[in-house]
């Protein structure tokens, strides 16, 4: 295929548009001025110290982490059940049920949050981290089902039968054969769900009550100009963490592929 120069220019412009703002984060995170503007005035690490000493930030961070880990675990677990059911069994209403599971993918989060808020308040449930987790599991589960379905789909049915044939029970077959072979999918699902939950704003804002999470806290801080540099520092830390996370995910994915000799199809990440 011949590369068109117009397409190349477009691709480069696209990448700059996408990533240049992120490149500004480290620049201003280390800039010795409370004003976010060029020219730069000098180098400092004091914004990181300020960030580190921000007690509110720590609370929000811990909340976010708790929510993201719980949502990732629950939605992946539900995803395993869902993917297994849809790829292995036939049952009436399968298409409809699957459609309902996948619905949050296209439903505006705002609508979902409002609906949940009305119901939870109506039921007298106190808004907290727990209610955010409920919302996030709802959002993350479709992704988990999609990722895991493709992992389960590519599993040769006769591998399972071979294990039964050699004396294993359905439970031990799941543990010894199926689980190891879909592990790359499970790791992908955990990471995707974790990431989605971590930077989710609307549900967290609606259902959080007086509990603040990272995304909501950061947004709130932009009202105070003098706080912005330390938020830049926080952003820089988050970018580094994301890169680290993606590297780990890719490492596990490649290792899974190398171990089973499957063809590398580029992966989800």
């Amino acid at each position: 295929m011949k590369k068109s120069p117009a397409l190349k220019t477009y691709a480069i412009a696209y990448l700059i548009f996408l990533y240049a703002p992120i490149a500004l984060l480290p620049i201003f995170a280390f800039n010795d001025s409370r004003v976010i503007a060029f020219p730069l005035s000098g180098f400092t690490t004091s914004w990181f110290v300020e960030m580190w000493n921000d007690q509110q930030l720590w609370i929000a961070f811990k909340n976010s982490l708790t929510i993201a880990v719980s949502s990732a675990l629950f939605s992946t677990l539900l995803g395993i059940f869902g993917a297994r059911a849809t790829t292995r069994y036939k049952f009436p209403g399968k298409g409809g049920i699957l459609g309902l599971i996948m619905l949050p993918l296209v439903l505006p989060e705002m609508i979902m949050s409002m609906a949940l808020l009305v119901i939870l308040i109506g039921m007298g449930v106190k808004l907290s981290i727990f209610t955010i987790i409920i919302g996030h599991v709802l959002i993350c589960t479709p992704y988990a089902v999609a990722i895991l379905s493709s992992a389960f789909q590519s599993l040769d049915r006769s591998l399972e039968e071979a294990a039964y044939d050699l004396g294993e029970t359905p439970a031990s077959t799941f543990r010894l054969i199926i689980l190891p072979l879909v592990m790359p999918g499970i790791i992908s699902s955990l990471l995707i769900a974790f990431t989605i939950s971590l930077d989710e704003f609307i549900v967290a804002y609606f259902l959080g009550g007086n509990q603040t999470v990272l995304s909501v806290y950061i947004f709130g801080q932009f009202r105070f100009p003098q706080r912005v540099p330390s938020i830049m520092a926080l952003g820089f830390v988050l970018v580094c963490l994301s890169i680290l996370l993606l590297t780990i995910a890719e490492y596990f994915r490649r290792r899974g592929i190398a171990k089973t000799g499957a063809k590398d199809t580029g992966g989800f990440l």
């Binding site: 591998l159 071979a162 039964y164 044939d165 089973t260």
Partner: peptide, 20 residues
């Protein structure tokens, strides 16, 4: 009698070798 309790073993068409 389930498959795992039968005195038979099978060589599958795809061989079903556990890849991991």
């Amino acid at each position: 009698v389930p498959a795992n309790k039968r005195p038979t073993n099978m060589v599958f068409q795809s061989y079903a070798i556990f890849p991991h």
